[in-house]
Design a protein around this nucleic acid. Structure first.
Lengths: 251, 251
DNA sequence: CGACCGCTTGAGAAACCTCAATCTGCGTGG
DNA sequence: CCACGCAGATTGAGGTTTCTCAAGCGGTCG
């Protein structure tokens, strides 16, 4: 686990040509905002699948936006029990909590190779001083994460194992689809252990639960992860309304 | 339930004399910040115990800061299963998620009589434009909520019923103590039903779990709620490090 | 006094867990 | 090319946790 492999790239895609910007999922930036973000960006970073990007307790000097790849945030108890808090995908800003409040209180790990845009924590205040609209976006981003965590909490606390699993897969599927991530592989790159650690279940019970979803032809599981057959069916089974479709900002 | 009783008060405590400001728990504001916030504040609102402050799905024109009293945020599934997401106490800003992102996706209810400072959603952008330090504070506040939700998620997902209950009570106790709320009553004003809905347990099992904590002399339960006997013991049982003691902003 | 709310208790059922063994596909070293 | 080892998925058995149902108790309030 936690191979620390990472490569720094000096050369970088200018934000003005960021492939994510063209997605209808994200709000448009004006020229000024784009220029500022471009200057805010210090470089790019490549990280291997399985690598740890942030470790709980660290004081990172950087924050990142995911350019490509999948990852997840998690916390652990002292005896090793792990809880996955949320998943990160392209366009997600990671490390904001640590940058704003000091020490990181959760870890972040790559599920696939990930490329990241690198920002300096120390320049965050400049953003607040010079670009109120981006400052607003940062609050927006934090509020969105909060909202998603609210829904996860509802899920773990009050949904049955079957509903929980359906919700999780539907959630990941919706997010990934909005980002057009299924042009290539159509596969959600997670192990059943990740599902278990997200849902607060054991792997064994998770396996039996996923088999029930597969028996209903809602999804199927293969070597590399999970493939969704019926996202709406999953959402319906979970009693989940889905993510709102408002265009969101990203830095 | 949900008595809609609320009283608007034109007269109001000026923010410069806000009793919360003097608590060491909060960061100090300079004169300029204080003046701005004072102008931002439109009045005060009194709300009865049991009243609903925000209802899921609403588009509120206001956001509030709790001046006094206890409340909680929650979500429900269609069939009525309820999950309490977090508790709100003096100094907490509520309704930010709705103000930033539009529709409210959770409800908020008063546990005790609550007094609120009222702000206008439409003036939020002014804050971002004119007071970067307060804008930063808003992101800080949202990040803090996120961090707390992370911990709750870990708790519900991976802690046993006994650990969960211990964590919850220790958490509420620490927060309330930092706010000097125990000068009067020393009681956390919740029913066992609230504990159950926070921990994702049934009331019956919650009752049995709380009795175990009481048997260990960590707390005791009486007519009006819960009283903590050994906050550190609770935190230790839960394997919880406690809240960080950084002074926090509030608007 | 009677109704109601919240806490308590017991009993049986369901959900979920741990342990342990097996299977599969894949990459590695020989 | 093959044997081996490993990670991840699968299955069964038996145990624990937590749930639901149901009844009872005590205090408060109209």
């Amino acid at each position: 686990m936690a191979k620390a492999a990472a490569t720094v790239h000096g050369q970088r895609t200018p934000c003005q040509q960021c492939p994510l910007r063209s997605l209808p999922h994200f709000r448009e930036f004006d020229r000024d905002e784009l220029n500022f973000v471009s200057g805010f960006k210090k470089g790019e970073l490549l990280v291997d699948a399985g690598a740890t990007i942030f470790l709980e307790g660290a004081h990172s000097a950087h924050l990142f936006t995911i350019l490509s790849g999948w990852g997840f945030r998690y916390k652990t108890l002292e005896d090793g029990r792990r809880q996955i808090l949320n998943y990160v995908m392209p366009g997600d800003l990671i490390g904001l909590q640590g940058s704003i409040m000091g020490e990181m209180q959760h870890s972040t790990e790559a599920l696939s190779p990930i490329s990241l845009c690198v920002f300096e924590r120390t320049e965050l205040m400049t953003l607040y001083n010079s670009h109120p609209s981006l400052a607003y976006d940062l609050t927006w981003i934090a509020s969105r994460e909060e909202r998603i965590l609210d829904e996860h909490l509802l899920s773990i606390g009050r949904r049955s194992a079957l509903e929980r699993a359906a919700y999780l897969i539907a959630y990941l599927h919706q997010r990934a689809r909005a980002l057009r991530l299924f042009n290539g592989s159509k596969t959600i790159p997670i192990r059943q252990q990740h599902v278990a650690d997200t849902l607060g279940l054991s792997v064994v019970h998770t396996n039996k639960t996923l088999k029930k979803l597969a028996a209903r032809k809602l999804l199927f599981w293969h070597e590399r992860g999970c493939e969704v057959l019926d996202g709406e069916g999953l959402a319906e089974l979970a009693g989940w309304d889905g993510l709102d479709s408002v265009r969101r900002p990203f830095i």
